[in-house]
Nucleic acid binder design. Structure first.
Lengths: 224, 224
DNA sequence: CAGCATCCGCTTTGATACTG
DNA sequence: CAGTATCAAAGCGGATGCTG
């Protein structure tokens, strides 16, 4: 990005991460920790491949990411965040908090990928009864699998699978997302194709604190 | 901005505020509360006037700002943030936190304006002895004046002047900025042209919690 | 196939000039 | 003061091609 020539932290920050797609690349790396070029391209539908390559160079020279050209056997470079890059997590979370209410106005040809809900699960879910021991919920959406774990009052979420979860949720990712983030009830979710395997009472322990994701087209009425 | 077509709060948020200059306009409105077109243009050196007009239209239709075409006598439209716009404050603060260390690498032809430090003063300053009663510090930089007030443990900063402050700091804004944000000592600041009028011991009560703004070109060594 | 680089048409941005 | 109009330059998206 062309600079702003302003002695101001916001302007300086935006010079490094204010370009189109840049923060979405960071989003992918926060979710997945390590990504190959193709993982990034899949997680960023719509990005032009040359632009992705360009942004990765910029991010690397800004010390926000680094790439490992994996060990000889596999010919796959892997991109990761540096500490400085992970420090962008509060920025991403603030934007996500602010932007989540906008999801109500559903664009018909917008793409949904299940792993995008991981950051929201990490920040918004709370274990209301940590003394009951750890719980593990396996999400198996059509496109991807996610694990939600609660232990010692801390809830974590990540892409992947786990053995013998307390509960498995199988069905459309968007419905499971609304269920876990508190915008839908379990009966509603079942009606919309979610199947539960295991102890569905653990869901009561996971309370969502996030901003409402209204279903009515509320237009976010400005109180001014 | 052209959309991302992703069902993701971050992507949706960036579609509204991810354009070049947009968050800097919000910055100006967070600092000054009410801005005329010209105030914005002065606070955003380098922006093209047509682009500012365009962004203001976008922000208004996104319900982030609104404009009052003031009462008949004065022919001055004024722009303000809506509640939804003020809700961007955590986003701005997160970016500022992340970007502030970058100020160390000083670009020779970057512009400095004193009012840009207001947001940093608001978030980073802490009154270490609130029981000693309220304090008011008047900053009189070459270009602008700022007031820092501490009362009941809350520190506020704003553009403007106040009568009979406990302390007045007069001198280059950048030096006063480093002094208040904890990157410079009072003797150093005096050497660099800062004059104090009044009770300079109140400075000891204002402790800066923000990220270091290193003076050495540390390159933010990536620990990876 | 993963990881780019190149080319081309379109959109956005920047600089300047101009108007009510 | 508060913008609009104009045009050149830069950035972006999509397709395609090249290299290990």
């Amino acid at each position: 990005m062309r600079g702003y020539q302003q002695v101001c932290g916001i302007a300086k920050g935006l010079e490094l991460v204010g370009d189109r797609w840049t923060l979405l690349i960071v989003r992918e790396l926060l979710i997945r920790e390590a990504c190959r070029y193709t993982d990034l391209r899949n997680g960023l539908p719509g990005i032009a491949t040359n632009l992705l390559a360009h942004r990765l160079r910029d991010l690397e020279s800004a010390l926000i990411i680094y790439s490992e050209h994996a060990s000889p056997p596999v010919a796959a470079a892997v991109y990761r965040l540096t500490d400085r890059g992970r420090a962008l997590e509060p920025v991403i979370n603030a934007i996500a908090d602010w932007g989540r209410p906008l999801l109500a106005e559903s664009d018909p040809d917008a793409v949904f990928q299940t792993h995008w809900i991981v950051l929201a699960l990490r920040t918004d879910l709370e274990d209301t009864e940590p003394e009951q021991g750890p719980i593990r919920v396996q999400i198996e959406a059509d496109d991807e699998s996610i694990v939600v774990e609660a232990a010692d009052g801390v809830v974590d979420a990540r892409v992947g699978r786990v053995n013998a979860p307390d509960l498995t949720l199988r069905g459309p990712g968007r419905v499971i997302s609304r269920l876990l983030l508190g915008n839908s009830s379990l009966p509603e979710a079942r009606n919309q194709g979610v199947e539960t395997i295991g102890d569905s009472t653990v869901l009561k322990r996971l309370h969502a604190n996030g901003p409402e994701q209204r279903t009515a087209p509320s237009k976010l009425a400005s109180t001014i």
